[in-house]
């Protein structure tokens, strides 16, 4: 199955822009950028992404809380979530995976290869 629709949740506007350029301009995906968990929860059903790229450290509702809330929504629960974090502690990464993330990506990331990485993760996930 081909990956087209990606939802990106990130409070930092600069990163939202860089990711948008990377995934839309470089990789050619259809992207919905949300500036926080609440926004994502409001739009996830209507946008119906195939993959959600979720930042961990966000004000108000952080990545894990957003992930938990997403898991509560029918049909959304099955959408693979990839966490993106600047925290590189292994224990934290393991924790995210245990909470349901399918992969954890580090910041900073390479904007030229981010799309390829997500595609690979998505394909790996959907082929299971």
């Amino acid at each position: 199955m081909t990956l087209n629709r990606i939802m990106h949740v990130e409070d930092d506007e600069s990163i939202r822009l860089v990711v948008e350029m990377s995934l839309v301009d470089v990789a050619g995906f259809e992207l919905l950028s949300c500036d926080g968990g609440e926004s994502a929860l409001q739009q996830v059903v209507s946008f119906a992404p195939q993959l959600i790229l979720l930042d961990v450290m966000m004000p108000k509702m952080d990545g894990l809380q957003t992930l938990a809330a997403l898991r509560e929504i029918p049909h959304v629960a099955d959408i693979p979530v990839v966490m993106m974090t600047a925290k590189i502690q292994d224990a934290e990464k393991q924790h995210y995976l245990q909470c349901g993330a399918v992969a954890v990506l580090n910041k900073p990331f390479d904007p030229m290869t981010l799309g390829k990485q997500l595609l690979a993760i998505y394909q790996q996930h959907t082929s299971r």
Partner: peptide, 22 residues
């Protein structure tokens, strides 16, 4: 700190990389 440093760094390097690449 690492988050706070990396977040802007992520934007900076990603932006520069995009410039240099595209």
């Amino acid at each position: 700190v690492s988050h706070e440093l990396r977040t802007p760094l992520t934007s900076i390097t990603a932006a520069l990389k995009l410039i240099l690449s595209t």
